[in-house]
Amino acid sequence: MVNLLSRTIMMGTPLLFGALAEVIAERAGTMVTAIEGIFLIGAWAGFVGSFLSGSLTIGFLTAILSGILVAALYGWICIYLKQHQVVTGTAINILAVGLCAFLYRVIFGVPITPLTVNPLPTIPIPLLSKIPIIGEILFEQNILTYIIYLLAPLAYFLLYKTSLGLTVRSAGENPEAVDVAGINVYLVRFLTVLLAGAMGGVAGAFYSIGFLGMFATNIIGGRGWIAFAICFLGNWNPKGAVAGTLAFGFAEAIAIYMQSIGANSFFPNELFIAIPYIMTIVLTISRKSFNVPAKLGIPYVKENY
């Protein structure tokens, strides 16, 4: 059980990175539908960066950089050129699959055995990790999990308790008012998308170099969309995102656990794989009241007459 919960936290880490990224960008009015592609590019760049340099830090930096690049393309098309977000996201996601597969081949050729790097080590925190049960679950994780412990409350604080957060949220609720106040709506939205790209890149790299230590083009397998869903289900609020992430991390941990104990002799493996997706569908349907940012997904058009 302790093992299961500790896995929940671990598997939840990249999801929370992605979900917080979505929360921030969507509060400012832009859905980042390219999230799946950003995750994938992050996973790819993280692997390539760390494999070539031998340093995981450089791997994560390349992941952040390439996440930002993809997000910049997405943000430019959706915010400045005012094109449709769902459609643009789909296009970028396809492009990301092609780019990753192609460039992996360009750099590594066709390796006979899968290339690997050593994934992030677990760092037990002194003292805290000695607390019975809780210590093992919460404080024997890798560095990214500790970062997200700090990032989630920080995101909440910034969004809801500072004037910066007010500006960001207003860009999604009432962009005209933000514009009248002399703040560039496009820039606010673009920067939040770039931030989302950076966080999404880290989330993707978590899958490749955070615990698997390898890269494959199907490594993300819809996890970007799940992060996207968590943002919706968590009511566009960091608090809700945390709750949603725990639920999904748990579902994913159970799936892995069930496979490892050989439960698939009486329960089909595929059922466990499908659980997070079924859960999203059920939760999306059963959720009644949403606190949707008023201008979510609608490009801002400045009047100029």
Binding site: T88, G98, R105
Partner: peptide, 22 residues
Amino acid sequence: IPSSIIELMQGFVMVFVILAYF
């Protein structure tokens, strides 16, 4: 040439088509 070039072409074409809308 790896066959992932197909996805690459499709992706690029789609992105440019969206720019064409603009």
